[in-house]
């Protein structure tokens, strides 16, 4: 960690900064910010038809405690599909889309890493007539 005195808009700021890979973490005026260069492409986390976020991913490393759906089930937005335990707490993970469960790579008791795919959901494509309603 480096300590810097920098002039920002005419004011002298005391800044603490550290680099991690391409990211820069810095503390200024009581807040911490993380900066990353634009050129770094964000990891594509989902291949779902409606774009990012269709699948349920592990937000942190943890153990799968309950799988509440099975392949082929149709899930609703907000439905709890899988539970995991991390850092002494149980977390209920919900579906972000309405769709059909396509894949569940983990079983109860298994350890998932951050960003692991937990439940793959194929979004239900609504019929045009249905969509209008």
């Amino acid at each position: 960690m480096k300590e810097l005195k920098v002039q920002v808009n005419g004011l002298t700021k005391r800044v603490f900064a550290a680099k991690s890979g391409e990211k820069i973490w810095y503390h200024m005026d009581g807040d911490v910010h993380v900066w990353a260069p634009v050129s770094r492409k964000k990891k594509n986390r989902s291949s779902g038809a409606t774009g990012a976020g269709d699948d349920v991913m592990a937000p942190m490393p943890g153990k799968i405690t309950k799988v509440l759906v099975k392949v082929g089930d149709v899930v609703e937005i907000g439905q709890v599909v899988i539970c995991m335990e991390a850092m002494k707490m149980e977390y209920n993970l919900k579906a972000n889309v309405k769709g059909k469960v396509y894949k569940i790579p983990f079983a109860v008791g298994e350890q998932a890493m951050q960003d692991d795919l937990l439940v793959k959901i194929e979004p239900v494509v609504l019929a045009p007539a249905e969509e209008k309603k």
Partner: peptide, 14 residues
Amino acid sequence: FPKEIASALSVEIT
């Protein structure tokens, strides 16, 4: 991201 911090850390930013 203040460019002043970038320059203090010798980081190129656009």
